[in-house]
Nucleic acid binder design. Structure first.
Lengths: 241, 241
DNA sequence: CGGCTTGTTGAAGAGTTTCAAGCTTAGTGG
DNA sequence: CCACTAAGCTTGAAACTCTTCAACAAGCCG
């Protein structure tokens, strides 16, 4: 099990530095590392609550489904993202979380939340920060799905994912490998699979971007910027628990 | 200025009881009551952060706009809702908040957040609870806008608003007065104004529900339930700050 | 090899938007 | 008191975006 003081994630600029004392405290909360196969449910919709986790490596997504099977992907989770905070306010999980790749997550002990607030106010603040930050992501997604048309949605979506992944040094040679299918994109953007495919092809034909079997390249920032303002939005440092 | 110990909101079942000590603490944070005219911006999009508020009376909504003016209403705010938590994680407001009626809000002092976490861990937990809870609202909205069709969207929307307002005893004779226009509904649900109107008329013609000049009645729960599962979802008690 | 998942494409159809016009209501000022 | 204005609501028709249906291709795995 990786020691929190040696956490490879924490070394990145993306995350705000943390006091040694707090780091040691986090270490005491970490119970184990758990892994999930691609497609496995880390959190099951409507089931009783599970543990609090931090995603250490791999990709996952949060989603909700309707009775008839329609699925909305709410957002995608990358390393450093917290899983399960929202469930703690409800008896049952209001959404599911599914692993897209092999996922490794740090599992915290059951009463982690309470201990944090009681013993480490700064970390309590960080928790609220993370909750509010994730909400602002969903706000963005709601804006996208509610107001943008298909081309704009896809451009916005890819730019956002690209920037997040870039902060985690996952972009290599201007190429990002994303373990998502067009199915995922469709469900995240409220589009049909067919229309997603056609829009994707159109964007490629125009030379704006390429997404082929999980490899994403933003080819023409100029063209992309005509479709979305997401590219020029600054990114903030964030806490890591 | 209303004393927090006499807060009319807090008397309702909807809100979780709070210890006297915590209540007194909240009282020390409350600086003043501020009011806003209908249409006034409580928080301005992209502007520097403002104070933290709790909505005491009136209706408001959170929104985001695109460069060309398209607007997405993210959610509606009712008495007891916290305003400005999300802004505290960013230099500028990521969304705007606009008053729909005359609004009265409790304004807290500048460093409220920090004091809460440092001095009242239980309230710190409540803050995170509220942040996570609002996110779950937005999750619901994203599901609605992304996956449901117009009739379902409107049915879901009205049921959710109705239930929230009902908890605040705002429903009288099975009728709820909502200060919203079809414009608001359209922007909240990602529909055009015209289509919103036509869908609304269709729902009325079918006898499902009536929304006429701000008066909402859910006429046929059976019919509404065929359009949305929102009606049968339980409601949870929540903290009030 | 066959079966399964993912991606691709054309055509038809439905849902939704846009355009355009008129209506009602409430408020304002002469 | 009535003309005028502005905001919100209503409706029909045309146009368009997006969905659904259907079929097939490509890649992967046991």
């Amino acid at each position: 099990m990786i020691d929190c003081t040696q956490c490879p994630l924490r070394k990145r600029d993306l995350f705000t530095p943390v006091e040694t004392e707090e780091l040691n405290f986090i270490q005491t909360l970490k119970r184990q590392e758990v892994s999930f196969e691609p497609g496995a449910n880390i959190v099951e919709e409507h089931k009783k609550i599970s543990h609090l986790h931090t995603l250490l490596s791999g990709w996952a997504f949060r989603y909700k489904t309707l009775d008839d099977g329609r699925r909305q992907i709410l957002n995608f989770l990358l390393p450093g993202d917290l899983i399960g905070l929202q469930e703690r306010i409800s008896d049952t999980a209001l959404h599911g979380v599914q692993a897209m790749t092999e996922v490794v997550a740090c599992r915290f002990e059951r009463n982690t939340l309470w201990k944090i607030f009681a013993q480490q106010p700064t970390l309590g603040f960080d928790l609220t920060w993370l909750a509010a930050h994730e909400e602002s992501h969903i706000d963005d997604n709601l804006l996208t799905v509610g107001q943008r048309r298909a081309k704009e949605r896809i451009a916005t979506f890819f730019v956002q994912i690209y920037k997040r992944a870039d902060q985690l040094d996952m972009v290599i040679n201007d190429t990002l490998e994303i373990p998502i299918t067009q199915y995922h994109i469709a469900d995240a953007l409220g589009l049909s699979l067919v229309h997603t495919n056609k829009t994707l092809r159109a964007l490629y034909r125009e030379g704006a971007l390429q997404f082929d079997r999980g490899r994403l390249q933003l080819l023409d920032i100029q063209k992309i910027s005509e479709l979305t303002d997401a590219y020029h939005r600054p990114v903030k440092r964030r806490p890591l628990l």
